[in-house]
């Protein structure tokens, strides 16, 4: 025996799951939405996606280099943040704003709090909110649409005003909005992929979208078509499938995930109907991110054979 035997505590094998693998699956799941966004909103979408993704990855690399931390861009989480941020922006956004948004997401929200796993709120969603309140381009600028059914940021104000886009247009994303949020079909493909790969569970997306649907139904006097239109429009599906399910900022247990999803759904509904902004998904997720440690504490698993909670 020339080589000494390796000693370590059990277990001696591993499932092979890794952070990088999970992030790679999230990126794959976002491809349909990115492609749909490019088809619907044109080639400038690709530019926004490229700038945001590259900025996020480069800024994280730079931050790690300056602070002499172990390089973490290999885990692909910065790429996920960049892509998600891009999909949350209109295709017409000025490029310098994309860079500022990425800087906010990666440096302020993620790296300054300690990097992956330590950010209290989702970087992409927080950057979107930051840009929404900072830049006029996010709220007032009319988004380019192929089929000019609606004028305005998203179809939401028009649904409120009584002119409703066709459900099929909403399903295929032929409406105004951010690059990745309009095409429900593409987002559902991503959702199914994430479920099949066991990256996420159904709890948050279903309870989030479900509670918005139920509330809208009640509010609109059981007009199913309108309620359906309301869950297909705005940033709801993108938020519920990809942003609210971020591991770091959502609860761990199934029970906690349901609380999170229902809470986010109720807040989205309240902001949409009674708030000053037409869309409330980002604010709702951000708010629930902040509540997550408390939800986690209250929804921990019951311990088998354990004593009752003190």
């Amino acid at each position: 025996m020339d080589k000494p035997l390796h000693l370590s505590a059990s277990p001696h094998i591993h499932s092979g799951r890794s952070t990088t693998g999970i992030m790679r699956d999230v990126l794959i799941a976002l491809i349909p939405a990115a492609v749909a966004g490019t088809v619907i909103f044109g080639w400038r979408s690709l530019l926004v996606i490229a700038v945001c993704t590259a900025s996020c990855v480069l800024l994280e690399a730079l931050f790690n280099a300056i602070t002499k931390k172990r390089q973490t861009i290999g885990d692909l989480s910065a790429a996920v943040t960049g892509l998600l941020l891009a999909l949350n922006l209109p295709a017409s956004i000025p490029i310098w704003q994309c860079v500022i948004g990425s800087l906010f997401a990666i440096v302020i929200v993620k790296c300054l709090f300690g990097g992956i796993g330590h950010n209290p709120v989702n970087p992409a969603i927080t950057a979107r909110v930051f840009m929404l309140v900072s830049f006029g381009s996010m709220a007032t600028q009319a988004y380019p649409v192929i089929v000019d059914t609606v004028a305005g940021a998203t179809p939401l104000p028009s649904i409120g005003a009584g002119q409703m886009p066709a459900l099929s247009d909403l399903f295929f994303g032929l409406t105004g909005g951010a690059i990745g949020e309009t095409c429900a079909a593409a987002l559902l493909v991503g959702f199914i992929y994430l479920l099949a790969r066991r990256i996420i569970t159904w709890h948050i997306p279903v309870s989030f979208v479900g509670s918005v649907f139920v509330c809208s139904l009640l509010m609109e006097g059981f007009d199913f078509t309108k309620a359906l239109a309301l869950i297909l429009s705005g940033g709801l599906l993108l938020g519920a499938v990809f942003m609210a399910t971020d591991y770091v900022t959502s609860p761990a247990t199934a029970k906690g995930k349901l609380v999170f999803g229902i809470g986010a759904g109720l807040l989205t509904f309240l902001i949409r109907y009674f708030g000053v902004y037409p869309e409330g998904v980002s604010f709702a997720i951000l708010f629930m991110n902040i509540l997550t440690p408390y939800i986690d504490a209250l929804t921990a698993h019951k311990v088998f054979g354990g004593q009752r909670k003190a």
């Binding site: 973490t72 770091v248 247990t253 354990g306």
Partner: peptide, 23 residues
């Protein structure tokens, strides 16, 4: 027997959701 490198916790919940006793 080679194990992957240890990285930061991403709070995915796999540990508590796979614990037979719910720890």
């Amino acid at each position: 027997a080679r194990l992957p490198q240890t990285t930061a916790c991403i709070r995915c919940g796999a540990c508590t959701n796979n614990c037979p006793f719910g720890l």
